[in-house]
Amino acid sequence: MHTVKLYGRFLIVYMRSQLEYRFSFFGDVFVNMLTFVSLYLGFWVLFQTFPSMDGWGFWEVLFLNNLNLMTYATCSMFLWGPMIQLENTVRTGEFDNFLVRPYPPLLILVFRQFGHTFIGHLIVSSCVLALCTYQLSIQWTVGNALFLLFCLIGGILIQGAIMIAAASSAFWVIRSKAVLEMSIYTVRSFINYPISIYVQSIQLLLTFLIPYAIVNYYPASLFFGKEERSALFYFFPVISVAVGALLFLLACKIFSRGVARYDSSGS
């Protein structure tokens, strides 16, 4: 599609110009990798003493976190920047600029930037995936690979949907950045651990209201056979993608609703 090619062209130019500042570029990437090193090291320390986390072992917990990380990083590369800045963009009236283009404003917001710092996250998660494969002797059969791929796609869509929907609060409330940060940091921190450790109500919240659990817990537990590898194993990836797509469309709809209400009060 024309729009995809347009963004592709931008990406090429953007990466070329970023790589000119070699030091900051690699600094950005490296520093972002540290985030997960400290988290995963923390897990490692815990598992030196404690044998299991509700039936999950160290590498399984790492795999769980990895799903979260991979989907979050991929979606953030395109969305994090504009969504975090949306509160400011709307408040100052800078959002005006995005309404006078021949494309929907959400697309324009994405097209103008690229979160190259998240590449660091992807490097870490790829390495971790390889490590988990080795440590857990995962066989990458066609079935397993497809399962993972679909769950990743579904996960990316869900992460994106939550990001867009939360950021859209900028059109209704002043402190929308706080709403966004609570959604993508605070609430998402629940899924750093298998949600089976939580009380029922929290599990329900994370499955049906803010469905982060679909991003990593259910795929991982099905993958490792925590629950019966029943027909659910074959259906789940499809459910994941379907739910993801639906939520993503819903989020875009919420965004458009917000735009319709935009008052452009910045002088």
Partner: peptide, 23 residues
């Protein structure tokens, strides 16, 4: 709009024009 730019921020001007040409 006087104070706010419509251009792509991080890339050279010539590249921005090329992108607009395409857009």
């Amino acid at each position: 709009f006087g104070q706010r730019s419509q251009l792509w921020w991080d890339i050279p001007v010539s590249e921005t024009f090329q992108l607009m040409k395409y857009m």
